[in-house]
Design a protein around this nucleic acid. Structure first.
Length: 286
RNA sequence: GGGUAGAUGCCCGAGUGGCUAAAGGGGGCAGACUGUAAAUCUGCUAGCGAAAGCUUACGUUGGUUCGAAUCCAUCUCUACCCA
């Protein structure tokens, strides 16, 4: 399989696996420019807590889409797509290779496989659905789209709610819309190139612990304290919620550190599960 | 030295004679997941076994009992109180 020189190269892997460093290596090899594919590194004012590349790293190659969103803005995979595509096109137009680096599986999937033709989430409708008991949401979904209800994890309120949202907003069955999209994306992966960084669990866990310590020692607490206008979404970022509790005096610093470590380990595990299914990614043991 | 409370699985913790391989939570492991995704959700978690089942487990040692994490005694350790 041959690639045009400017075809994007994807660097994936769990958090703290060393994606940023690898991106610099690949960017140097491919005459590339680094593009963020991390949901939280997108935000301004979350650089430390989201482990965005340091100013030193950024000085070594062009970096795009780091710290570009105000924390009050609620992003999603679709809005990310609208943000990245022009950036990548501009890089390619310059004859350079986009080196897309990040750990947000869903965002990357949108980028590599495109968005399904589904309606964008609607805040007002979501607020309404949030007020309804899960059992009733399930009943409504079963009535509107029994096929989708059958496929959905019905204990997962978010999934039920979104399926219902799709039906209500589109006036069509979520299952039909999804089927149509599914059948169109089957071949896309064969044209992609990228790698996934693999590390042993003990190694990864040690790296996470070191990074958390460095974050807390390196300004993360002040960063979160200064974060006054964050969207509900940003408040849920790992590190932010724990440091909020620390600032409120609810937990001790050591507890805060332990909680961040545990949440990060669990997140890393979920990322590994996600990327394991992306067979086109070439494993790179480190 | 005296008194009181306590010691449970990787951790915290419930259990006070059989329904207990031991609730619940955490952690860990595995998984799902196309517009909240660093989110949300699911399963498993003493050992061996496909299973039936067997073995080892509630600080120590001994005892009571058909049967003990649960009752009694002993010792060890921990916390607090009195000297």
């Amino acid at each position: 399989m041959s690639h045009a020189t400017t075809d994007p190269f994807y660097i994936c892997g769990p958090t703290a696996s060393g994606k940023s460093a690898m991106a610099l290596e690949i960017a140097a090899q491919l005459a590339g420019e680094i593009v963020n594919a991390d949901a939280f590194q997108l935000y301004q004012g979350l650089e430390i807590v989201s482990a965005a590349p340091s100013p030193e790293e950024r000085a070594q190659a062009p970096h795009h889409l780091y710290g570009v969103l105000d924390p009050s803005v609620a992003a999603d995979a679709g809005s990310y797509l609208r943000l990245v595509r022009p950036v990548m096109e501009a890089i390619q137009a310059r004859g350079k290779t986009p080196v897309v680096t990040g750990g947000s599986g869903l965002y990357l999937k949108f980028l590599t496989h495109g968005p399904a033709p589904l309606p964008t989430g609607d805040a007002t409708l979501r607020a309404e659905l949030d007020a309804i008991p899960l059992e009733e949401l399930v009943a409504r979904l079963r009535a509107l789209d029994p096929v989708e209800a059958e496929r959905t994890a019905l204990q997962n309120r978010r999934f039920v709610s979104r399926a219902l949202e799709i039906c209500l907003l589109s006036g069509q069955k979520a299952s039909d819309l999804r089927d149509r999209w599914q059948s169109q994306t089957a071949q896309l992966a064969t044209q992609l190139r990228g790698c996934i960084i693999q590390r042993t669990r003990p190694d990864l866990h040690a790296r996470i612990a070191n990074r958390t310590r460095a974050m807390l020692d390196g300004g993360a607490i002040a960063e979160v304290a200064a974060l006054t206008n964050a969207s509900a979404n940003c408040e849920k970022a790992i590190g932010v919620r724990e440091i909020r509790a620390l600032l409120a005096g609810e937990i001790a610093r050591a507890t805060c550190e332990n909680l961040i470590n545990a949440a990060t380990r669990q997140y890393a595990k979920r990322q590994e599960s996600w990327f394991r299914r992306e067979h086109w990614l070439q494993p790179v043991p480190r």
